[in-house]
Design a protein around this nucleic acid. Sequence first.
DNA 1: TCTCCATTTTTTGTATACAAAATGAAGAAC
DNA 2: GTTCTTCATTTTGTATACAAAAAATGGAGA
Lengths: 256, 256
Amino acid sequence: MSTIVDLPTETPEQGSSASHQGENTSAPETSLREATQTWIREAILSGRYQGGEKLIERELSEMTGASRSVLREALSHLEARGLIVRQSFRGYTVAKLSTRSIFEIFELRASVETLAAELFAERASDQEVEDIGIAFEAIEAGIHANDLKKIRTAKDQFFGVLFAGCRNSEIRRALENVIDRISYLRSQLMSDPRRRQDSLVEMRLLAEALQDRNRVEARAASLAHLESARDALVNQLSVAANTKVAKAITKVPRKS
Amino acid sequence: MSTIVDLPTETPEQGSSASHQGENTSAPETSLREATQTWIREAILSGRYQGGEKLIERELSEMTGASRSVLREALSHLEARGLIVRQSFRGYTVAKLSTRSIFEIFELRASVETLAAELFAERASDQEVEDIGIAFEAIEAGIHANDLKKIRTAKDQFFGVLFAGCRNSEIRRALENVIDRISYLRSQLMSDPRRRQDSLVEMRLLAEALQDRNRVEARAASLAHLESARDALVNQLSVAANTKVAKAITKVPRKS
DNA sequence: TCTCCATTTTTTGTATACAAAATGAAGAAC
DNA sequence: GTTCTTCATTTTGTATACAAAAAATGGAGA
């Protein structure tokens, strides 16, 4: 059952740089289009625009300062990533997450993210193994400090190192897309102190397995964390069925 | 180790239609942008534009009849899907596949596509099980008739049914993207009669397992097929290292 | 007060125009 | 003959304009 093989190492710079170029390589922010895109993405991920909400071009244009040409390119890009959807002559709306979508996403993640964990254990550099430890400690510190923003940053860091260490930019790309779609829910989840504590325990197991380069344990810990996060998310949704977040997730438009 | 659970069935029309809307739902081809996008995509997949080749806007504009606004939206969309890459002030080029990328893609597919096969065995409707059989017979007929185009169409059909039957549009989305990227290589592969024969045998095993709804066998057959296809592809590349296809795959630009 | 229809306004779809950057070519200096 | 510089052309980046479709508004009739 070995799906893990040694990948060829030739032309590594070409393979990976070409693959995730144009993604969120936060560094240079070359074109206006990319900046606009990032702005909109951040606005959605931070919850400024809720699921199902309409994105009005004039409004975005004013806020970002970009012209409509640029704006529409950015929107088209985000549509391809699944973050927003377009209907003919009705413009773009923020993609809605049905409960079903959440299950689907976690089903995919359960397959791919566990693979990523295994691959990290196998392929990560010593530096990356060290970085995983550092990132985990940052998460821990954030939780103790009760600092939501810090937690989120540290988690992004953690998964960033994880995906880099697995040496497969296709996995990174596939996961980035689905994680984007649910990431504005993550902060909702993390606001529950008990869930935070559970999450910390699960992630410690994962971090330790990764640092030990223990493939089997890493997969198991990753899967456990995912299932736990999924269940917590679905639970919270069914409990808080009246909050605006829940409405943004579960409801279908009435007059479509 | 059960990553397979029963997905909730609520709001199925919303969940799925919203999820893969705006993809290649070949039916209505509403907007000009989508048509343009499809045109470019087809041009790349059919090999009309080779990997690394530059896409000149004026040229595409003339060929598709679309204005630059529309064209650029389409290009932006395709960039997000990874089919083309953009460099500042140097326009778009068709994404190149390094050997490494191919390994990465197959590594991802080995994880996700086998899951899709399992899920199909579990969840597909009786109609879909039947359709899988029909699609397979079409592939068989195509191979016997030695009709490359027919083979390709039938295979698309087969995987279309497979992805639909697994009831997870996220999986479909993730796989569509990576399969797009290597699909212009598939015809190269299929031109080798021996590989065609091998492929047929592997796919028969897969089709039979799917029709028997045998999860374990389905996964095994899917994995076997993938590894076989990957190896054949890599083999062919190293053999025919001087063909234009190989050049499009392996070489890095000299003056970048 | 409610409902239906016509008109106005907003918003999207498409096309064109102008500016900036990069590429390529011709000519001058060596 | 070669190389460097300068200029013209091409191509991309950005902004604006116009047309078509949908949504919002408001008034007339019941």
